[in-house]
Nucleic acid binder design. Structure first.
Lengths: 319, 319
DNA sequence: TTGAAAGCGCTAACAA
DNA sequence: TTGTTAGCGCTTTCAA
């Protein structure tokens, strides 16, 4: 077996409790003793057994994150933020992908709950009630979702959408269609709010490339001069459909996305979209979780979004 | 506190050992007893404490994966495969992103080692020696890397590269340039092997969009009629550079990628690239890890790659 | 087929 | 400032 706290105690000629304290409550040990212990620890390469520690403290030192779709670049970026912040605190992170399925999502959170100190739930498709129930089971922080009494961090969709519409109107557009995401997605509702009735609503579509391709097909008949998409993946799908049908973007029709994933810069035309501070959101979520674990109250943070104007939007044809 | 094994024992009127056996060694318990225990377990919603179990068995029921860059869509896809397979066995997965830094990578594996049953190391930038050392510390499975004595699963780059070159030659190309990835990346060496001296070598470049943009700038002077890129992200960067400088792809110059990330279908022109079975690789890695944990020997698996011809390649100009 | 009891490695009273 | 000791919740001998 690996080296235990007793080996360290023996070699440092102190009791196990002194070793334990030297490591986790340095203030309670005489400096000289502490140094001796630390030397032995380093020499032996001792690493405390997390299971044993966890058994006593009730803390695991782990946290979990569940996202709807790892293949949407939006989410790995959130993961990265979570890992960065958690890593600083020596916390490890479990991940899970619910594949856009609410039942799987709830199941995953329940499973995780047993082995983490808390979980970050991203773009949840669950009902408010289920979320509240889950939050009673384990410290929970929501990303891009608001449920009363549950901590959350929001990348402000409504304001982002507002910027999109303002941008299109400044270009003379008057008739635009919103290609909506999943009905169960809270962000979708939020974006529709941001539209404030100023757009024709279509959808719901799957929030991925194929969904966008299908969406564009439906949208083309509406006579809209601009397509506002639920997210970049849908926008990219729409772009592909339009290209395949010789509809020029942005000359004939403008297209906007949401999220500002890496691809939004790479595609052609580059996508006008709303930038979301994904990594920052992940980091803030970890902070909120930490404050929850310290016994703090549920908190809500809002992160600003910014419209990034690229090549997929231009003046309304004939305007 | 949560419900413990004693609560179950009490209510089922058996000893704790019987409960334990009913749960983890059903054969050793009379069927009727077992059923009674199971009923109580369900009724109470009992979940065994993993820390306590782990303390005794020495197994954590967790595994870890470290990848160089979560923002490269190639890796989330591997993650997904790992999670899928691990989830089936009730195993949870820790993830870490090394940000393309070998020191960080080694550090992450060492940290993980203490709290997982094994780790999957993806596209490692470490030296063979370090990897061997790590493998002595914890069960280890490599993805896209071969080190003698260490389990690994390979998506066959050399053959993929061979297909790329054969494809270009069938289109009449004679002069092509390879835009290389990181020198420390084993896959890069492997791909160069696959080229078998048939291409001009340029690089190394960062394996991302910016790297590709810079790479194309250098490559344009070489007079090559085709650019073979280390990965799709580099190819995408190259595409962007070429578009910005009015070089028509594929009319003036053909471009190929590697990995077949989702975006390779979405870009314009859609990218001719080598499809990598990423999710499958993740799943196989988990299998290999499991066999390692069962005391099996280090194994090596190779997964086939296939060239996917899309719109970014065509006949050599003037051919 | 079952139960009693001894720990796994650690932390946290409680004493000294 | 340090040591002694009693468990945390579970699995696994060993006996019955």
């Amino acid at each position: 077996m690996a080296v235990t706290i007793r080996d360290v105690a023996l070699q440092a000629q102190v009791s196990v409790s002194t070793v334990s304290r030297a490591l986790s409550a340095p203030g309670l040990v005489k400096e000289a003793t502490r140094q001796r212990v630390l030397d032995v620890v380093a020499g032996l390469g001792y690493q405390p057994n997390r299971a044993a520690r966890s058994l006593i403290t009730g803390r695991t030192g782990n946290l979990g994150i569940v996202v709807p779709d790892l293949l949407n670049p939006f989410f790995p970026s959130v993961l990265r933020g979570v890992q960065t912040k958690a890593g600083e605190a020596g916390t490890s992170v479990f991940f899970c992908d619910s594949r856009e399925d609410p039942d799987t999502e709830a199941e995953l959170v329940r499973t995780m709950a047993a082995q983490v100190d808390g979980v970050v739930l991203c773009a949840s498709l669950l009902s408010d009630d289920t979320i509240v129930e889950l939050a009673a089971m384990t410290p929970l922080v929501l990303i891009n979702r608001i449920v009363p009494g549950v901590s959350s961090v929001l990348m402000d969709s409504a304001s982002g959408m507002d910027q999109v519409v303002a941008h299109l109107e400044s270009l003379g557009h008057e008739d635009y269609t919103y290609l909506g995401g999943p009905a169960a997605a809270w962000s979708n509702g939020r974006r529709i709010q941001g539209l404030a009735g100023r757009a024709r609503l279509l959808g719901s579509f799957e929030p991925n490339f194929n969904g966008g391709y299908a969406a564009a097909e439906q949208a083309l008949g509406t006579g809209a001069t601009a397509l506002i998409c639920y997210n970049d993946l849908i926008a990219l799908g729409a772009l592909a459909y339009l290209a395949a049908h010789d509809v020029k973007v942005p000359e004939q029709i403008s297209v906007t996305g949401f999220d500002d994933i890496l691809y939004a810069t790479m595609c052609s035309p580059a996508l006008t979209t709303v930038h979301m501070p994904t990594e920052a959101a992940g980091e803030v979520a970890v902070d909120l979780l930490a404050s929850l674990l310290d016994g703090g109250p549920a908190e809500h943070r809002e992160l600003p979004t910014t419209l990034v104007v690229r090549a997929s939007t231009t003046r309304r044809p004939g305007a």
